[in-house]
Design a protein around this nucleic acid. Sequence first.
DNA 1: GCAATCTACGCAAACGTTTGCGTTGTAGTT
DNA 2: AACTACAACGCAAACGTTTGCGTAGATTGC
Lengths: 368, 368
Amino acid sequence: MLPPGISGGALYSSVAKKRASITDLAQQLNVSVSTVSRALSGHRTISEATTRRVVTLAKEMGYQPNNLAAGLRRGRSNMLGVVVPHIDGNFFSQVVKGIEAAASKAGYHVLICQSNENVAHERENLETLMNAQVDGILVSLSRTTREFRHFDKVRKRDIPLVFFDRILEGHDVSAVVIDDRAGGYRATKHLLEQGYRRIAHFGGPQHLNIYKHRRQGYEDALREHGLPVAEELVCICDMKMEDGSAGMRQFLQLPQPPDAVFSASDFTLVGALEVLKEHGLRVPEDVGLVGFSNELFSRLTEPKLTSIDQHCELLGRSATHLLLQTMEEQGQHLPPRHVVLQPNLCVRASSLRTGTAATASVRPETIK
Amino acid sequence: MLPPGISGGALYSSVAKKRASITDLAQQLNVSVSTVSRALSGHRTISEATTRRVVTLAKEMGYQPNNLAAGLRRGRSNMLGVVVPHIDGNFFSQVVKGIEAAASKAGYHVLICQSNENVAHERENLETLMNAQVDGILVSLSRTTREFRHFDKVRKRDIPLVFFDRILEGHDVSAVVIDDRAGGYRATKHLLEQGYRRIAHFGGPQHLNIYKHRRQGYEDALREHGLPVAEELVCICDMKMEDGSAGMRQFLQLPQPPDAVFSASDFTLVGALEVLKEHGLRVPEDVGLVGFSNELFSRLTEPKLTSIDQHCELLGRSATHLLLQTMEEQGQHLPPRHVVLQPNLCVRASSLRTGTAATASVRPETIK
DNA sequence: GCAATCTACGCAAACGTTTGCGTTGTAGTT
DNA sequence: AACTACAACGCAAACGTTTGCGTAGATTGC
């Protein structure tokens, strides 16, 4: 016999510390589990009185629904997967912020994976996410991704898939992208308006839409101005700082070096800027610079870099919305959709040739 | 009757596209589900032959285990939660990289939440993570977190909790931190060795360990040199760029302005640097600067900023290991443990007064 | 006063695993 | 021959939800 006041149950519970489940609530209230479940999800077939009782007890006992169980039963996890090349740097961390905001508003959690610009990693990331039973996947391709085979498994499983920013050319997928051609065009045109005439270009791997289109915009602007597209003024590289230094050194050895550079990334520009200073060339007086992505540090260099801003957060939100929409229309197998966002030119000192007539109309733009 | 070759099952399956489950495998092989389960997890009570059969069929059918179901049954989700103030900036994105690496090596997924330096957000993040049934949580506190109450719920549920970098003073929790006092001390001592004598300090909210300790190191170094700690040379702020500008402007209005600044963040230093240039003061000749965190952009300013590097990735890995260890020792309720990592001084131009005798022993340090 | 309609709730199956225990069949021991 | 011992596998419960269907009792319409 136990002494009065000490039941076996109480003794046990002082050890176990089990989380309260829906069943516990049901027992305490003398109702069925289904009633509790429905009450908690606000079903209207449950009387207001019972709902109140359930909700208050739930709060009192600190009840927290078990998402695993719910997910198992409903066939979905309420989790979204994201694969990005990396989260350092301004662009992707901002995009991720947008994704998280939109996802959590819709009741989804977000699983973030980094491919480190490595296609093998990217493949693993996809496995990881599928293993975690995510309901949908957002991907921005790594720079080394040249084929699509590792996505077959995802599509076979009918897991909704939306790409953003970086996609592979010629593949029919849903995606949210920036109008990179327009970005490249505006950047180059701005340089032309500032009076620069021999404009070089740093570009990334051309199998990626973003780099290809930025270059197209660059070429379009030149042609529109009746200028030739010089092969020796285009440098295709990996977009690292070092690549910018190396590329700029090459440019400066040309018989006719460029008087401006439009780069598809701010990173290369930093390297280029260093080399220019080494050579005693002044920016923007001798050489004008325009970058892409509007990285945080672009405001910190001397001079500050003109760059194309991509509304990163909006991009993230849009991609998430498209994914959620795709998920809703699951069975229907509608054709892929594309959303195109317009980028902004952020004019700063690196491309403003003071004293030039063309400057008059352009004023430094502040970022919202 | 159905026409030959078309069974009801086939017809159905052509529509449903169900993912293969362990049960499907069992049926195909005429064994029980438990056998399949054990075979897949490499149990030795299953004959080698059957194991092989199961594994090959699993691969053939593209079987992917359902983590939700497994998690439900085993009482854990194999997911870790992380709460960071933000993931932009070098520090936290690197730390997260370390966390991910260590976690995935141990078979865990990682859920990342950003508090945006907001304690209310932080509270929501915790709810989110608990809701997602994570098995453990890693937290670096937001700058506005001054009390601990929102962590009670986590501890009540016995969810293993490890803090990293930013913790609240006087709370008994497991944590992996940097030796910030040593960092502050070395930074300040370096400035003293370079001949600077009137050294100012930018600090963050003093309820956070990191800012308090960095300041302590600063003061210790001054005292050791027989220098007074001047109240007017210490600026406690929010560590934004703007705060740096504003603070520097104040410093310059003093009757005796400082000849160097040790800042607890690189960000403020960028603002300060701008102001110094405005006033025509040269760095490092007139004013020396040393920051903290070794942000990416610290190598891009003019001049490059000397800063304290924190081995971000190692920090992330250490924190994860401590968490995993804590999870293993769950029931035992051992006392909290602390791990302290040593930071590194990265000397760059902003603090190198050439021509000073003291310079001889110090050479620019490269970062691994 | 009786069928029809609602309201508010309960029953039980299902989601895909894991795991303690029970059950075969075979080999080895005495 | 009767026994134990062990290897290899099956049974069924359990994890915590959700949800289709069923069913009391109350209300309505005529």
